[in-house]
């Protein structure tokens, strides 16, 4: 039963992605990108990654949409008579070739949800974190344990990246955008 929800969500995500790509009005594309993010976050949640779903909802559908809207409010948006964008055949060919190359690898991948897939069944890595994270860190949520304890310095580096991005944004805009 759950796979039908998943298939319907997959169709939803694909449709929103195509609509985002083809709409010429940038504001409409942003609105549809928000819908795409919602669908994608729902898909992450369905694939049992609630932390990722929550982050994607807040950052993809919330922060990114607001940043794009702020940009639109400060710049121009093309207002043509056409609704759809003109299709660029060369870019379409390049992306189609990429999709075909990646699509050929599909039979080599394990099925979605296969418990024997190496990434979930390899005891030395996944099994270690699942069985030892509470004893090592005192956190029940393994994702949090790995993020904040086992790979704490990595997360610190990530915070540095966010700080650097904030500084770069302020330097580029010379503080004018915040008014």
């Amino acid at each position: 039963m759950i796979e039908y929800v998943a298939y319907a969500l997959a169709v939803f995500v694909v449709l929103t992605a195509v609509a985002t790509a083809l709409l010429r009005d940038v504001l409409a594309a942003i609105v549809l990108f928000g819908a795409y993010s919602l669908g994608m976050a729902l898909l992450y949640t369905l694939l049992l990654a609630p932390d990722v779903g929550l982050t994607e909802a807040v950052i993809g559908a919330g922060v990114t949409t607001l940043l794009l809207l702020l940009t639109i409010a400060r710049t121009v948006r093309p207002s043509g008579d056409r609704t759809a964008e003109r299709v660029d055949p060369r870019a379409l060919f390049a992306c189609g070739a990429l999709a075909v190359v990646f699509g050929l690898t599909l039979p080599g991948l394990p099925a979605v949800g296969d418990p024997n897939a190496p990434i979930v069944s390899y005891e030395a890595v996944t099994g270690y974190y699942l069985s030892n994270s509470y004893a090592d860190t005192g956190v029940e949520n393994t994702v949090t344990a790995v993020l904040a304890a086992y790979r704490g310095f990595d997360t610190f580096g990530e915070a540095t990246v966010v700080f650097g991005a904030g500084v770069a944004t302020l330097v580029v805009l010379r503080r004018e955008v915040l008014t």
Partner: peptide, 9 residues
């Protein structure tokens, strides 16, 4: 694969 190709497009 499909959405990645769309994004690249």
């Amino acid at each position: 694969v499909f959405v990645m190709a769309t994004g690249l497009y």
